[in-house]
Simulated assay, not measured.
Amino acid sequence: MGALHQGHLSLVRRSLAENDLTVLSIFVNPAQFAPHEDLATYPRTLPRDLELLSEVSVSGRSPAAVFVPTVNEMYPSGIVLSVDQQKGTFVEVKGYGHQMEGRTRPAFFRGVATVVTKLFNVIEPTRTYFGQKDIQQALLLRKMTRDLLLSHPEPENLFIVPTARDPKTSLALSSRNSYLTDHERENAAPALYAALDAAKSAWESGAPKAECISRAQAVVERKKAELGDAVDLRLDYIDMNDPESFDELSPTVSRGEWEADQEGRPVVLSGAMYVGKTRLIDNIVLGARHTLGIVG
């Protein structure tokens, strides 16, 4: 949706390395926002975005085009933020949008599926690249391309590129990081990834899911106590989910039991946390991440 950073540019570089022509879309999609969310204030930095893209080159290739549609072009029937009042055609992937991120943002994936279907129809890409930071979104779109029998792209050609992180703090790069103060960005926001990393270590040591989540929550609570009133730090959720169904793992299941029952299927460990008014998300894939289409 614009406000490009090195995470976005990692997708561009991957495409440039693997394709003759690379097309980008930049569009702040209103259908992804609820009425109470930050559509009006979402960062829009198109001149800077285009400047950054003009500097990207891999093996002599640069982006061939940037598709920057208007809201009226993408939603010719009009668009309002209240789902109950919307008119026109929308795409919904049933049964996969209420878990994980969908618990907090129930209409979000409907908006994602709709706009990405439109973009696929306009551009007809052979291959597409999405970031792992939004892992549920990327996996849902792979399901959508399969279910709608899309040929551009085919499901196996929707690639997920690993999350780009700040080299000092490991904070996942995000356009919404621009909302954070320097203090929040350096001292509070990295607690989410640290919490996920604690859960990962517990899982790999054989602890059951409930213990993994407890250790992750403890990391956030310690950071919250350390910061005191200086930062409003609030955990939204941390959970472990099946990447196929998005269902939550049983609290008692351990790594050994899961891998034996699921024949090595990975687990998505994800979370969301508020730092002040800014909501951050992150995830770690536990196990054979290449089976989910994650490259690199």
Score class of each variant (00 low, 15 high):
residue 235 L to P: 08
residue 25 S to Q: 05
residue 14 R to A: 11
residue 283 N to T: 11
residue 140 L to H: 04
residue 94 K to L: 15
residue 81 L to G: 08
residue 110 R to D: 08
residue 111 G to W: 05
residue 106 P to W: 06
residue 42 Y to M: 04
residue 15 S to E: 14
residue 264 G to V: 06
residue 144 M to L: 15
residue 94 K to I: 13
residue 287 G to Y: 14
residue 223 K to M: 14
residue 70 T to L: 13
residue 122 V to N: 05
residue 4 L to Q: 04
residue 192 L to W: 09
residue 280 L to H: 06
residue 260 A to E: 14
residue 233 L to Q: 09
residue 72 N to L: 02
residue 284 I to M: 08
residue 6 Q to L: 12
residue 296 G to F: 03
residue 173 L to V: 07
residue 251 P to S: 09
residue 82 S to Q: 11
residue 2 G to E: 04
residue 294 I to G: 07
residue 279 R to P: 08
residue 71 V to T: 15
residue 180 L to E: 02
residue 110 R to T: 13
residue 173 L to D: 06
residue 166 D to E: 15
residue 146 R to G: 12
residue 125 P to K: 05
residue 85 Q to T: 02
residue 24 L to T: 05
residue 175 S to Y: 03
residue 165 R to G: 13
residue 37 E to G: 02
residue 57 S to M: 08
residue 281 I to Y: 11
residue 45 T to W: 00
residue 195 A to G: 03
residue 11 L to M: 04
residue 27 F to V: 02
residue 231 V to L: 11
residue 286 L to A: 05
residue 294 I to A: 12
residue 286 L to P: 01
residue 251 P to F: 12
residue 288 A to C: 01
residue 87 K to L: 11
residue 41 T to W: 01
residue 255 R to N: 12
residue 144 M to F: 10
residue 107 A to I: 02
residue 198 A to I: 02
residue 9 L to W: 01
residue 183 H to Y: 15
residue 81 L to C: 05
residue 100 M to S: 05
residue 276 G to R: 02
residue 95 G to Q: 00
residue 4 L to T: 09
residue 51 E to G: 04
residue 130 F to D: 09
residue 257 E to Y: 00
residue 143 K to S: 10
residue 193 Y to M: 14
residue 73 E to S: 06
residue 60 G to V: 06
residue 41 T to E: 15
residue 83 V to Y: 10
residue 171 L to Q: 09
residue 100 M to D: 08
residue 54 S to K: 05
residue 173 L to E: 10
residue 15 S to I: 08
residue 11 L to H: 06
residue 54 S to V: 00
residue 156 E to T: 02
residue 187 N to I: 07
residue 171 L to C: 08
residue 69 P to D: 14
residue 221 E to H: 01
residue 1 M to S: 12
residue 55 E to L: 14
residue 286 L to N: 03
residue 140 L to K: 01
residue 261 D to I: 01
residue 277 K to T: 15
residue 23 V to C: 06
residue 128 T to Y: 03
residue 114 T to C: 11
residue 266 P to G: 00
residue 152 H to R: 08
residue 28 V to S: 15
residue 202 A to Y: 10
residue 36 H to T: 14
residue 260 A to G: 03
residue 217 Q to P: 02
residue 141 L to T: 10
residue 64 A to E: 14
residue 242 D to N: 12
residue 57 S to A: 12
